[in-house]
């Protein structure tokens, strides 16, 4: 292998190391409205690329098209990466593939439940005009629950109520 080839390999490895670090830093940014989840948990963070000179490009995807948290995500990612020593940050919004709650890991679902938000029940691909999934109360676990409204405090949540323990709760909609 030539000396020039070695230098290229070393540079590529250094960039890859920086990319992984940028991915970790960006991935730890919390959702401003559901702070127990990070943008990595949510699947909002799609890709990170690092160019020479510490320039980072981040791809994120919106949960719902009008989600106001996207502006906060953008600012927080930029702040976190600059604080971690990267020289400049560019954030792209990508629409495809469309975000789905199917991307939430089992761990992320458990974090939601422990926080008091019922995690999405079932698969986003299964859908009917009427009828709801069975949603377990995040407090007492009862399935004796009912929907109060399809729409809640944020675009991603619905309002539900537990008939067993009488607790009202947010349900992270299957989307």
């Amino acid at each position: 292998m030539s000396a020039a080839g070695d230098t290229d390999t070393v540079q590529a490895l250094a960039l890859e190391e920086q990319r992984l670090r940028a991915l970790e830093v960006a991935g730890q940014v919390p959702d401003p409205e559901v702070p127990v989840l990070t943008i990595a948990d949510l699947g909002v963070l799609r890709d990170v690329r690092v160019r020479e000179g510490g320039v980072v490009e981040v791809d994120i995807t919106p949960t719902y098209t009008g989600c106001p948290a996207m502006a906060v995500f953008t600012m927080d990612i930029e702040t976190a990466l600059l604080a971690a020593g990267f020289s400049s940050v560019r954030i792209n919004t990508v629409l495809s593939p469309a975000w789905t709650t199917d991307w939430l890991s089992a761990e992320a679902r458990e974090k939601l439940r422990a926080y008091g938000i019922a995690p999405p029940a079932g698969k986003a691909s299964r859908r009917a005009l009427f009828g709801d999934d069975q949603v377990a109360c995040p407090r007492c676990g009862s399935l004796e629950t009912e929907k109060v409204s399809e729409f809640g405090s944020t675009a991603c949540k619905a309002l539900w109520r537990c008939r067993a323990c009488a607790e009202p709760f947010d349900y992270f909609k299957c989307h």
Partner: peptide, 20 residues
């Protein structure tokens, strides 16, 4: 109140679609 939030949510979806 629930419907107020509901209609605002639907409006917000349309704002997002319009922006894109």
């Amino acid at each position: 109140l629930e419907e107020d939030i509901g209609l605002a949510n639907v409006a917000l979806d349309h704002v997002g679609q319009a922006r894109a």
